[in-house]
């Protein structure tokens, strides 16, 4: 049933593909963090058209499937002259999709900062940028780190969708190996365990980060 020798022999290939999965997740998440913050700012803008349009975009991206967005980026954009590698398209798709969720997370964190903090910043005549950088974000983000971490793990588990735009991430690699040898159980099981271990390690990391950020 389970062939250890076979299992070991396919490890190098799977680990290589796992690197692609990890790279896509980390880059996608970084993009989502930055874009999410920009969306949160745009949403709060006093310039009404900007905040309304942003709200609409966020709602649209959230309520359409990630897979459809990936297809759009990879197969439709080239018709407009924008051709992306599978990895770039995947990172952009993941980043864009998750940025809409993260923008809501940021918003909740920002809204939870007491009004008195803004007022103290005004009374000290701090500039708007300085108020955000020194006063608001350092208080808004630590409490939402656990939620952000959940989205990180969620994105990690969504990476197999990138196989739909021809990216050979780890699950797709397992499938290819399986179809070559007609032995699926080892590659698929190993990939499942890889996801399990990495998700667990990530959640431990997030918890440690959370503890470090909340020391005051």
């Amino acid at each position: 049933m389970w062939d250890w020798e076979y299992a070991f022999s396919i490890m190098p290939q799977l680990l290589e593909a796992l690197q692609i999965t990890i790279i896509a997740t980390i880059l996608g998440f970084l993009l989502a963090c930055i874009l999410g913050l920009l969306l949160a700012f745009a949403r709060r803008s006093k310039f009404k058209p900007l905040s309304l349009v942003t709200g609409g975009v966020v709602e649209f991206v959230r309520s359409t499937p990630l897979l459809a967005q990936l297809y759009f980026i990879f197969y439709v954009l080239p018709q407009c002259g924008i051709t992306l590698s599978p990895l770039s398209a995947g990172v952009i798709g993941l980043g864009l999709h998750y940025s809409t969720y993260l923008s809501e997370v940021y918003r909740a964190g920002i809204d939870a900062v007491p009004r008195g903090q803004w007022e103290a910043a005004t009374a000290l005549n701090l500039s708007r940028t300085r108020t955000w950088v020194s006063i608001i974000l350092p208080q808004a983000i630590p409490p939402v780190v656990p939620v952000m971490g959940n989205y990180f793990i969620g994105m990690f588990k969504d990476t197999p969708l990138l196989s739909a735009i021809t990216l050979v991430e780890v699950l797709q690699a397992a499938k290819i190996i399986g179809s070559r040898t007609f032995q699926y159980i080892e590659p698929i099981t190993i990939v499942g365990l890889m996801f399990l271990v990495l998700s667990y390690v990530s959640s431990l990391g997030i918890r440690r980060l959370e503890a470090r950020l909340n020391r005051w």
Partner: peptide, 26 residues
Amino acid sequence: GMVFQQFNLFPHMTILRNVTEAPIHV
């Protein structure tokens, strides 16, 4: 300048940084 009923100190900064933040950046 103003002092508030609820103090409104910056909870994530040390006392020293609470007092130096504005002089440095403003």
